[in-house]
């Protein structure tokens, strides 16, 4: 079961498009679920994700327009794994690992997917996975920091999964890093 994790597209405010290399990878029919942890910011972005897979889950980011109705948090269950989603701008201090742990505890999930920093980051803490897939479009941050385009792919198999991290380097080459993860306490 392939789950695409993306975040912070910021189209069209800060980025015109998903990089070509990524568009070539993210073709319809291969991925079953898409989780977006915020800041799609446009219909165009959503359409792009919906074209990849029918099942798209989105939480609201700070730049998503107020008329959209995404929730701030969401829990999705795929295989035997529960995955929490939050953008992260609501977490204080932003991008603090400890603060994110608190969020994970409140959501009671195995994996927390978040965004907001535009920087890909994966941590395994106390048997739980924290994933920031990074910005799919490589949009700059609100303070104008340049970022590498990135996303993550979860291959879920029951209680285990493999995470693939994709990054687009400045040489326009895609770098892929796998990471194994197994849920610590499968349901007794």
């Amino acid at each position: 079961m392939l789950v695409l994790l993306v975040s912070d597209l910021h189209m069209p405010e800060r980025s015109p498009n998903v990089p070509k290399k990524f568009r070539e990878l993210l073709v319809p029919g291969k991925i079953q679920h898409v989780l977006c942890s915020g800041n799609l910011t446009s219909r165009t972005s959503l359409d792009f994700l919906r074209n990849i897979a029918g099942d798209v889950h989105v939480v609201r980011g700070d730049c998503d327009r107020s008329e959209t109705s995404w929730p701030d948090e969401k829990v999705v269950r795929i295989g035997n794994l529960s995955i929490g989603m939050i953008h992260g701008h609501q977490v204080f201090p932003n991008n603090s690992q400890k603060a994110l742990e608190a969020v994970r505890r409140s959501l009671q999930v195995d994996i927390l997917v978040h965004g907001s920093t535009h920087e890909q980051k994966v941590d395994e803490i106390d048997g739980n996975l924290f994933i920031n897939p990074g910005s799919l479009t490589g949009a700059s941050t609100s303070s104008g920091d340049k970022c590498q385009p990135a996303f993550a792919l979860l291959d879920i198999n029951g209680s285990a999964c493999t995470l693939y991290r994709y990054k687009l380097g400045s040489d326009n080459k895609v770098d892929v890093q796998p990471l194994e993860f197994k849920k610590r306490c499968p349901a007794a």
Partner: peptide, 11 residues
């Protein structure tokens, strides 16, 4: 969608 596109033009 059209507005999106116009905005993307700026980029």
């Amino acid at each position: 969608e059209d507005l999106d596109l116009a905005a993307r033009f700026a980029l």
